[in-house]
Design a binder for these strands. Structure first.
Lengths: 217, 217
DNA sequence: ACCTGAACACCGTTCAAGT
DNA sequence: ACCTGAACACCGTTCAAGT
């Protein structure tokens, strides 16, 4: 008596477990089959191939991320709060980020935030194409930041050793800046600083061409 | 007579060619050996393993990116121009982005811009830790954007088909926005919009706590 | 409809052996 | 110092064959 059936869901479950424990690199069809106690080829019958397996896992994980509730009084604050919440969620699921990148599905990661953000951008008084621009800008910023962050984590020694690279001369004679650039990066702070600046800039930008102040490049 | 010596440089050259033509995925030790006309194991003697080979390729390619010359009258414009120039350079080397991501070397990609940016941030009147913050924010934004952009390019159909996802209801009753979000993304425009907003926001932000206007979250 | 083993065409890396 | 072939321990996927 070999084993009691084999369902697509069971495959996804144990695959998710494998990924959670050792990352997407450890998810091989053969290891998965061993874990399930089946022949490798059975998996193919249920899920197609490794790529569709990953796609299914991504979809499932994104759906489990849950809703994002904005906090704060002003629209800008609420947009920033959503961005920060999404980043935190994604940070808590590093394997999701890895899978999403492997499969080229960055769009998916932003789904939980998209509808919420649309409402907040509306509340900020922006509509139509202008509103879409803001949503897109925030999307690329958050997703991009998370990709960079996750990438840095599994980096080697960080090649030329940024510490020695930033002597006071290369820093345009600003030793304090040299020190700051040589120190390990506080990605949390980088994110907070930049998302605030980005949202501020986006919401106050003049509607294309009708600038009141200096236009930036 | 098998072949005239085998140098580390020759290995890197043909490896770079292989990557340029078919991407980093096509760079296998065995194909490289075949291309070189040597035994696979000879490569190991010269470059160690595949990882160090990729690292060497990244370093070499980054060094070849060349200098970035700022343009524009105001510091903000000049910072934006550097960011845009770096993005364009990286877009022109999609395989570099891929290798950098595979090896976790995102830091490297920003090197050509770093010193230039330091000078411009100084010109904007910022120094020390505050200046480093701005440099870092721009770094993560540009590198992150490029990662997202390259990732999207090799995406499958884009899962739930954003077109149908954005009916007018989900878009908070804004059909123009729904249309804009359903349309294919103009990443060039997204980048321009967001880098301008980011830099504007970064340069006008009050020095931490001593805010004159509303603080954002 | 579902599961199997065998086989194909790949990988990176190590190691003892050659010159 | 440099190069080699053989071998190890893996991969994803296909396919004919079973029940």
């Amino acid at each position: 008596m070999p084993r009691p059936s084999l369902s697509r869901d069971e495959i996804l479950d144990t695959a998710a477990n494998l990924v959670k424990q050792h990352g997407p690199g450890a998810l091989t069809m053969r290891k998965l089959a061993a874990e399930l106690g089946t022949a490798v080829t059975s998996i193919y019958w249920h899920v197609g191939n490794r790529e569709s397996l990953l796609d299914a896992l991504v979809e499932r994980t994104v759906a489990d991320l849950g809703e994002l509730r904005p906090t704060g009084g002003t629209p800008a604050q609420r947009i920033v709060s959503v961005a920060r919440a999404l980043r935190r969620r994604l940070r808590d699921h590093p394997h999701l980020v890895a899978m999403v990148h492997e499969r080229g599905l960055t769009e998916q990661m932003f789904l939980p935030a998209q509808e919420v953000l649309v409402r907040e951008v509306h509340a900020a008084g922006l509509h139509g194409a202008r509103a879409a621009e803001v949503v897109r800008a925030v999307q690329f910023h958050v997703v991009g930041h998370v990709l960079v962050e996750r990438n840095r984590e599994r980096a080697p020694v960080q090649r030329p050793g940024e510490e020695e690279l930033w002597g006071a001369r290369t820093a345009d004679g600003d030793p304090a800046l040299a020190r700051a650039l040589a120190a390990p990066i506080d990605t949390e702070k980088v994110f907070t600083t930049s998302i605030r600046a980005l949202v501020t800039g986006l919401l106050e930008a003049p509607p294309r061409g009708a600038g009141t102040g200096a236009t930036v490049n």
